[in-house]
Simulated scan of single mutants.
Amino acid sequence: MPGARITALGHYQPSRVLTNDDLARMVETSDDWIRRRTGIATRRIADEAESVTDMAAAAAEKALAASGLDPRDIGLVTVATCSAVDRCPSIAAQVAGRLGLPSPVAFDLNNGCAGFCTALATADHALRAGAARHALVIGAEKMSDVTDWTDRSTCVLLADGAGAAVLSASESDGVGSGADGIGFGADGIGSGTEGNSFGTAGIGPVVWGSDPSRGDYVRLVDEWQPRFTQEGQAVYRWATAELPGLAREACRRAGIEPGELAGVVTHQANLRLIEAVLRQLDLPEDVVIAQDVVESGNTSAASVPLALSKLVERGELPSGGKVLLLSFGGGMSWAGQVVECP
């Protein structure tokens, strides 16, 4: 099978900046309280008329331009989102229309905050199977639409934005340097030591799953007026206990040690949580850790591609450098993989 790699990135954020001091005038909180508990200083909030589709299309247009591809080359578009109002046509189909893509398969994917890494793996598998040559994978959220602005435990977290990646099939042997290729087994991709490394591809095997017994930890429910709610302490305990092992497994399946990473981009949920998780990996000091949550807040499925695109744009990650992507959220769901920077 061909390999697949990320060839270009793009991102978009609304112009309105909401500071902690602004929030302190809306709800009982303070800049000090928010920074100590979350690490967040500012977040971006979309205008009322600005939709998930608007933000997704802006990020995707930037990624497509950076890729140098013609719109006709894109054969698959998927948008990870949990906050979109539109059901049909999908956000992906609307983005395809705006960018002038003539006939891609287009669909939305809802896996909460784990959505982008899930969508990335889904598109990667499609390209490896020959279903398309090039794909657009987008994470886009307007979390301000589903925020309870009277709940200080959640309204201080959430924000809006979008990030996008162009994936392209390569002529490599794909993931897996052994005779068994990807190495499917009872526990999914890469269950053994055979054939579960990068090879010459740019996207490593995915580690993904869910724990439905903890599905009420993060919720977005109510048909007519959905509101984001979460059990913050329960999420923190779960993440700090489970994510370090998932990070190591993603590295193992990619055939590298965590210390060989150029960077780590986790879901930007909470800076204190990110720090607690990554301390357990004992990473070298030169590994770049995404901390976009400080200036962008928690943008759910948009947070990983948004943070990754900004790091690459600023030149903080080297081309070809191995970067661990790791996301988690409602479900409780998780997805992660090691990728090479474009």
Rank of each mutant, 00 (worst) to 15 (best):
G174E: 06
E313H: 13
A290I: 06
I256L: 10
L220M: 12
S170D: 15
L158M: 09
A66S: 11
E141W: 06
G331Y: 02
A135I: 09
G330N: 07
V265N: 02
P104C: 13
D47H: 12
T147Q: 09
T81G: 05
A234F: 09
L311G: 10
A201F: 01
W334V: 05
V77K: 08
A121S: 15
G163H: 04
A290R: 03
M332N: 00
A169T: 10
C117Q: 05
Q291Y: 00
C113G: 15
W334A: 05
G263R: 11
A60S: 15
P342D: 02
G202D: 07
M1Q: 04
G245A: 15
Q291D: 15
R279G: 12
T266Q: 06
A262K: 04
P104M: 11
V221C: 11
R252W: 01
W224K: 14
D286P: 00
G188A: 08
I289E: 03
G320D: 08
L167P: 09
R152E: 07
R5L: 06
C88R: 10
L69F: 10
E61D: 15
G190Q: 01
V288H: 03
V156E: 01
T29A: 04
E260D: 15
R252N: 00
Q337Y: 02
A186R: 14
D70P: 06
A164M: 06
E171T: 15
A46E: 07
I45H: 07
V137S: 05
A57P: 05
L308D: 04
A254V: 00
S90Y: 04
L158F: 14
E295G: 08
G130P: 05
A66Y: 01
F184R: 08
